[in-house]
């Protein structure tokens, strides 16, 4: 099946920060993602409650 997947700029909020990773909830039921700290770009130290944004589309199984 052919899809037209277009990344959308989605806002979100940091839920949890550990010494290994960060957990983020995305606005509008897009889910929660957990990524290593190196995947996050920030001018300041990460804190719970900070607003983030990320370009995201759907996950397609190939």
């Amino acid at each position: 099946m052919d899809y037209e997947l277009t990344p959308k700029l989605l806002p979100g909020t940091i839920l949890e920060v550990t010494e290994r990773d960060v957990k983020v909830t995305l606005k509008g039921r897009m889910g929660i993602i957990q990524v290593p700290l190196r995947s996050v770009i920030s001018d300041h130290a990460l804190q719970v409650g900070q607003t983030i944004q990320v370009y995201l589309s759907y996950i397609q199984v190939v």
Partner: peptide, 9 residues
Amino acid sequence: AYQGQLVVG
């Protein structure tokens, strides 16, 4: 709308 744009048609 913006967030739920259709992916197939």
